[in-house]
Amino acid sequence: MDLRIFTEPQQGASYDDLLAVARTTEEAGFDAFFRSDHYLKMGDVSGDPGPTDAWITLAGLARDTSTIRLGTLVTAATFRLPGPLAISVATVDAMSGGRVELGLGSGWYDDEHHAYGIPFPPLGERFDRLTEQLEVISGLWSTPVGETFTHQGDHYPVTDSPALPKPVQDGGVPIIVGGGGPRRTPRLAARFAAEFNLPFSSLDDTRAAFDRVRGACEDAGRDPETMTLSAAQVLCCGADDAEVARRAEAIGRQPDELRENGAAGTPEQVVERLQAFAELGATRAYLQVLDLSDLDHLRLVAEEVMPHV
């Protein structure tokens, strides 16, 4: 199983904080460093020094790292126009030497939209816009060099675009679609995504979501085996119960609750949890790290968990 580190910088992190985590992620041998794409803190934290833009920080990390993959889980379709987003992601892909992945979702956190003047349409329209963004971004990237791309859309019409720049990695930038939506999300994943991700869900809910995505692939005439399935879980690992409790307290959570709802406990317990997701078909796990100052947490997981999953 690929293990990826997943961060939530809107809770309070500077670029230097993210760089320290990304470099530790790389040095420890994890597969990737991902970050959320949010503009407002959640919960009872300060959020200082304030939000950072996902694709600007990933551009910096593209130059400040050399091997790990980089991406968003997930960029909100409400935040950016699809044409400029395709340009930004392709640019960061080139800056990284082909290590970028794009997670794209409909957007859900209304408070951050109000806080920064971003329109927040109703859910149905957000999914319509997400669908069209996926059509535009995929179309721009797949248009042969020297040809133009046109899209007749209700929200993002495109006319005679040169469809440049292109991603540098073979096959283009992998797109990740995720979430627990029972109908439209699986269909979008089957149509556009290299990977389907289900975040912060139980084993039963994960099994049901994976089955829906496999079914959507079959309905679309796609081999379900071509879809990477992944899970995201909050991480709280300690060498013993005392260390687990200390790390849980640092992020304002209870050890027992984390063991039930996340990848938490001793290394053996975290391995057992990840193996349970692997049995459902997950070949990748995103480990949400909430205390970005605790780099020893990453090192422990790399040494005691990674070799066993």
Rank of each mutant, 00 (worst) to 15 (best):
F149P: 00
G71T: 08
V213Y: 12
G98W: 11
A28F: 07
F127H: 12
V145K: 02
W108M: 04
P9K: 00
R126Q: 13
I5R: 01
Q233M: 11
K41H: 14
A302K: 11
E249I: 00
R69Q: 15
D17W: 05
R184W: 04
H151C: 06
E279P: 00
R253T: 06
V271P: 14
A250E: 09
Q169W: 09
T159M: 10
G103Y: 12
G221H: 06
G153W: 03
A189P: 08
A76F: 09
E26A: 03
G83H: 04
V270W: 13
V136N: 03
A13W: 11
P182D: 07
G12Q: 06
R80A: 02
P9N: 07
G29E: 15
R259N: 10
E249C: 01
T148W: 01
Q169I: 10
L274I: 14
Q10H: 08
L3A: 13
N261H: 15
V74K: 01
E249F: 01
G179V: 13
E132H: 01
G124E: 15
T65W: 07
P255Q: 07
E8L: 15
T57D: 09
H151D: 04
V45T: 12
H308S: 11
P255E: 10
H151T: 04
Y109H: 14
L130C: 08
D294A: 13
S293H: 12
P255S: 08
V145W: 00
